[in-house]
Design a protein around this nucleic acid. Sequence first.
RNA 1: GGUUCCUUAGCCAAGUGGUAAGGCAAUAGACUGCAACUCUGUGAUCGCCAGUUCGAAUCUGGCAGGAACCU
Length: 305
Amino acid sequence: MEKIILIVGPTGVGKTSLSIQLAKKFDTEIISGDSMQVYREMSVGTAKVTPEEMQGVKHHLIDYCSYKDDFNVMIFQKEARKIIHELVKQHKIPIICGGTGLYIKSLYYDYEFNDEEKDEDFEAFLKSRSEDECWNMLRIVDPASLEKIHKNNRKRIERALMRAHMGNKKSEAEERQNHQPVFDAFVIGLTADRDYIYQRIDERVDVMMNHHLLEEVSSLITSMDDFKLQSLQGIGYKEWEAYFKKEATVEETVALIKKNSRNFAKRQYTWFNHQMNVHWYDITQEDFRKQIEQDLEEWRKEIIC
RNA sequence: GGUUCCUUAGCCAAGUGGUAAGGCAAUAGACUGCAACUCUGUGAUCGCCAGUUCGAAUCUGGCAGGAACCU
């Protein structure tokens, strides 16, 4: 199996900085596992690495497309795996660093995506149906998928119906998978006390404001319809809609961004703690970086043997 | 000093006699093509004391804290 290093953890723990340190030490490159940093026009609110911070280390899947483009897990998985294979050929151990749980897992585990053509008619049809109608349809078409989707989760129910409609039922596809990793990965998780993380998140939002977050958002919005873009559903962006409608002040918006970021961090913990085997390191420990390097060295030796 | 009003979970807040809506926050969790998305679970005996009543957050009295007005 190909060897990769995964760096995960909640927003604002310092994944970026660690990834660059490790990339330099092991002479390799970094693949971003982040669903928002792919948009080239969005840098401040996504806390994207700056060219100076990169220190010459090559980064992939950052500034990949425009915020007006569609991006999704399938594209991510395909692109990221392609880059991994190339790096491994050069005898490098790719570092994947990011906080988007689904993206990381889809790359690490044997998730399979098929090429799909958008069926807008069927999409519109689903939108026109009531929640009960959708749920009942799915109960007939792919009842097994209901085990993992709650009745109120309209979005997931619509997707499952779409898959069934395209002849690629969710439950059957997952039945065919082994639910095992397809890479030999060392998963590094960065963590700290919840209070400390929350404090760092609040501070980071203040820094974003000083780095002209509001100006960045303004530059992206040409009409209020732009707030419907998937890219602008990101935290740090969607909250400004109320501000532009004059329904909220800057202070209220900033407070909301902080709150949403904290809630997001909590969800990231839930994901990484339960979806994959993570080696957690506390960033408030003096020598955590050294410890990680040591553990990685040992892990590398195991590989050679 | 006097008059009136207020006091329900961390916050906002319904509920005027039959054993406490809801929202936010917090917290736990789910997640296979929008995932920084979407969704799910979890909390109080109603400021304190006494009384009326079969039964009080809801009525009466006292105390405490707060608000407004008057002198």
